[in-house]
Every structure is written in C-alpha cells, then in structure tokens.
Nucleic acid binder design. Sequence first.
DNA 1: CTGTATCCCCGAGGATACTG
DNA 2: CAGTATCCTCGGGGATACAG
Lengths: 113, 113
Amino acid sequence: MKRYHCAVELAVDVIGGKWKPVILSHLKEGVHRYGELRRRMPGVSEKMLTQHLRELEADGLVRRDSLQGRVPHVEYRLTEDGERLRPALQALYDWGVQRAAGTGITFEPSPIH
Amino acid sequence: MKRYHCAVELAVDVIGGKWKPVILSHLKEGVHRYGELRRRMPGVSEKMLTQHLRELEADGLVRRDSLQGRVPHVEYRLTEDGERLRPALQALYDWGVQRAAGTGITFEPSPIH
DNA sequence: CTGTATCCCCGAGGATACTG
DNA sequence: CAGTATCCTCGGGGATACAG
C-alpha cells in the first residue's frame, strides 16, 4: 500500500490532475450529465474527461448512473466521500474568484454557477 | 492574458503541481527554512522543491527572505495572498486525514503538525 | 448522446553530481 | 546550509477519428 508523509500529499494524489478539481466542483453544484460537463469545460478533451471521471469513480468520489431509455443518458454525482470535499472545493473556488479579481482576470462564458 | 472558464481552473493553474499544496500547507504552520521543508518532504527532489518555491514566489503566494549571517539562512513564509489559501489547505488536509482513516492508510514519520 | 481507440508530444518530475 | 546544473524518463494530456 502506498504511504504518504502528509495528508495533503494523499489528497493531491487522489484529486490531483488538471481537471479533477474542476469536475468535482461542477458536480458539487448538482447532478450533471456527460454532455453538460463537456459544455461546462470546453478546455478538456473527451479523452481526459472520461478518463478523469473513471478515476474519480474508481476512487469512490463520483458515482455514475446509466439510465435506460431510448437515448443514452448518464448521470454523474458526488458520492458521500466526494461530498466531504465540498469545503475544500468551495475554498478553492472562493480563492480563485478573489485571485481573479485581484489580478484583473475575467472568466469566459459560460459563467459557472 | 490567460483566460479560464472557472475559478477552480485558475486555482489549479497556480497551486497545481505535485508538491505545491504540500509546501503551502507546511508553510501555513509557520515560517520554514529550506532544509526544514526538505526534511518534512522526503519524497520531493531538491530540484522540484526549489523550482516550486520559485514559482510560488513568482505567483506571490510565498515570500523568501535571505538572512545575512555566518551561514546561509533562508526563510520561507506565506504572503498575504498565500494566507488566503489557508481555508482551502486546511480543508484539503482534513479531507486527507479522514480519507486515510477510512481506507486504513497511515502516514510515515515525520508526523506532520 | 456517451463514449472508445490511437497516435503522439512535451514538459513535469526524478536522479545524480556539483558549488558558494 | 541552500541551493545549481544536467541529463533523462515517463506518462499526463491533447488531437483526431470512430462507434454503439
């Protein structure tokens, strides 16, 4: 089993990666379908989005529900363990907003939440 | 200027990287010298530690103070903007602790804070 | 709509040795 | 003590095409 020297090290190992925190922070706003996530994250390739979702699922942070129907319909949501990340995600988000304000950075549409 | 679609994206761009959150979370516990950081993070190479410290400094999250004396003495501490990350770092740390407990992961000495 | 399957590149990160 | 300097590997991540 992998061992760490610090809890933050462990956290980074699980939610590190360019897009994982972004995915999680979207999911913390509610259930999302695959296509919704794609639209909210124009910068990520399909490959990476899928791959990160799979890893988050494997790590128990995200649940994937495939609903039966005429047309493919998949929903992603946070698991309980994922929900526990909410404070961290929110804090990260808040810091990003402050930082953006302080440096004159603006966000492109689509406005997020 | 670089543009983002989400504040979390911005945050990750600044504090992303395998060791940056770990460095910051150590510094949030107080001023550290270079060697102290190294000892607290046995997993990181000197190159990466220095490089990440330089980037954090350039991004205004960390201040570096080189004290004059018989022997080299350098101190690192959080800037005001770095301090604002405290809630995020703490939340990340707390989550890591919970996660470790839930999965039976333990941390190697040196015990961290 | 929700993904796979490939191919490929670049740079983050590591190992090691050396220095003022 | 507090770093540089080099060299090198590896896989994260991107682009594109295709599929059920």
